[in-house]
Design a protein around this nucleic acid. Structure first.
Lengths: 144, 144
DNA sequence: AATAAAGTCTAGTAATGTGGTAGGATTAAA
DNA sequence: TTTAATCCTACCACATTACTAGACTTTATT
């Protein structure tokens, strides 16, 4: 499985926040937990990754919660998944930096590279806004 | 990691057999193990999956080994990886049969489906013959 | 000032999956 | 009958995943 609960919950969580967002009032973990049926404690960790990824900022203290740092049509799904999962690379030899030393003569390397490209082409074509609209019944925003 | 050693070794192994194949003499696990530096015992398990997948047939006993059941340009990489890994599906909800009950209203389902499609588009475009040619120095056979 | 509602940080842990190893049984050639 | 090979299945160490837990900090409200 390439996309673990971390990545899936991250998307679910950001979509949930977006759907319950007025631009001013922070959305709390408790709310998200109640609506999505996910544990508060695990959500804390997922959301921490989203803050670190630069999509959310936190308001601490009573009536605190999370706000988006930028419009949701400027957050690409690929960025979210990378922040949650580390990478979506289908094989280790594609993980940035430490490329396998034999990749130049590896008969399968071009294949893996193409799979990787294909995955990122999809996830970078979608924005968070596209996913939120999907729920609302629209379906015309799949194509770039 | 979506493609584990099982899938990677499966490809490596079939490529190795193809490169040392005369169409009649069975290629043994011992040979492959020596050339590729993989353990005989682990290779046994990988190759068993390839036999089950219908790409190889075995000749038992002394001087035994494995033969292809059909021309290597008729074996698609996607079939090999499916046989080795079970599935390349990026999320559980896409695994055949048991589709998640909420998929109809799931805002992320279309995204996952598209990722899945993109992956299979790539792996089904390549055949084993393409990968073997890749090694030999050719590079014109990437496109379908 | 006290309280309560929130986020922050770090440690621990059960379950699962990965990547093997091991041993013995079976088959067939020499 | 010996030997070279596949076949079958059990086992195991390690890493990762998917959480749980608890103590601490911050801030609004009273």
């Amino acid at each position: 499985m390439m996309i673990s609960t971390k990545g899936r919950y991250a998307l679910t969580t950001l979509i949930d926040i977006a759907q319950n967002y007025d631009g001013e009032t922070p959305v709390s973990i408790k709310e998200i937990s109640d609506r999505q049926g996910l544990s508060v404690k695990y959500l804390e960790q997922i959301i921490a990754l989203m803050v670190k990824g630069g999509f959310l900022k936190s308001i601490r203290g009573a009536h605190g919660g999370y706000l988006f740092t930028r419009p949701i049509d400027q957050i690409r799904v690929g960025e979210i998944l990378d922040a949650a999962e580390g990478t979506l690379a289908p094989v280790d030899c594609l993980k940035g930096g430490t490329v396998c030393s034999k990749s130049a003569s590896c008969p399968t390397f071009p294949l893996y590279k193409e799979i990787d490209n294909a995955i990122y082409e999809v996830v970078n074509r979608y924005t968070l806004a596209d996913l939120v609209n999907e729920t609302s019944g629209e379906s015309g925003s799949k194509k770039a």
